[in-house]
Design a protein around this nucleic acid. Structure first.
Length: 272
DNA sequence: ATCCTATCCTGTAGGC
DNA sequence: TGCCTACAGGATAGGA
């Protein structure tokens, strides 16, 4: 979506707020971006890569509350917490808004892109190389972390966040509390199959808005209505009717159905 | 090596 | 109404 909006446009001017995000934005950013043309947009895991001519790539991460907002209006309504505004030559603009400032934005030379410390540690993106159950099974061998936290670790597989970890494990019918190293081949097969399914559908629907997330056009994402467990504590499981449980793992919420995802949950269909 | 905790921030919802 | 606490999409430094 971002690519459709900005590819081919030339950056005419750049404004910085001066505020510090996760790390500080280099003050040289505006001068380095000016007159650059957007040649393409890519993604790896949760990182967005905006390719520019002259062999530069603008690397960004939304963190918890970041968003890119595109506007064709030359004078869009001013917003708080806009840290970068790229004004294009045709009058349209792209703004990076991030109230909590956990996001990041960095300009990198393309020939050094994958040596950037943030990207260098990432595992494969599940769309570039769909994970096989066997591969995950091997990767998890000996791991004592919970499978939920295992899925969140971007160094193994990049792109699964807190919402989708719960959704993936629910659909794969795996108890999030199990140690990653304890899952069998069949269980990893089930999880592996759900990863691109869940992420793919979430992307198609432009993400999940359960609080404040907004799309490029400042609209809520449409995956919220597809959530089976996330943010549904106490509500009936859509599959078996059992109340959904919320637990905390690594200081983050996990939601699951204690019946469908019991320690030895049946893989058979249910509906009590 | 692996795992876990605390920390960086602001906004908002809910209890009293 | 106002005050207070808890919690929120994430990554990562540093300690056990």
């Amino acid at each position: 979506m971002l690519e459709v909006s900005v590819r081919g446009r030339t950056i005419a001017s750049v404004r910085l707020s001066g505020a510090k995000l996760r790390s500080r934005i280099a003050p040289s950013l505006p001068s380095r971006l000016r007159r650059r043309r957007v040649t393409g947009v890519r993604r790896h895991g949760k990182y967005l890569l905006i390719d520019l001519d002259e062999d530069l790539t603008l690397l960004s991460h939304l963190g918890m509350s970041g968003r890119w907002l595109f506007s064709t209006d030359g004078r869009p309504a001013p917003l708080p917490h806009v840290h970068v505004r790229l004004a294009f030559a045709d009058g349209s603009s792209l703004r990076f808004q991030d109230p909590r400032r956990f996001g990041m934005l960095r300009l990198v030379r393309r020939d050094r892109l994958w040596r950037d410390p943030s990207l260098a540690i990432l595992g494969p993106d599940p769309f570039a190389s769909p994970p096989a159950g066997e591969w995950l099974h091997r990767l998890a061998r000996g791991a004592r972390v919970s499978v939920k936290n295992f899925l969140l670790d971007q160094r193994r597989l990049a792109g699964i966040g807190n919402i989708y970890a719960s959704e993936i494990l629910h659909r794969g019918r795996v108890d999030p509390r199990r140690r990653a190293g304890a899952l069998g081949r069949e269980e990893w097969n089930a999880v592996a199959a759900e990863i691109p399914r869940v992420l793919g559908e979430a992307i198609e629907r432009m993400g999940t808005t359960f609080r404040s997330y907004r799309t490029l056009w400042n609209e809520p994402g449409g995956y919220g209505e597809k959530l089976l467990v996330y943010d549904r504590a106490g509500e009936p499981c859509r599959r078996c009717g059992t109340p959904i449980k919320r637990i905390v793992q690594g200081q983050r919420s996990t939601y699951f159905c204690p019946r469908c995802q019991g320690r030895k949950a049946s893989r058979a269909p249910a509906r009590s």
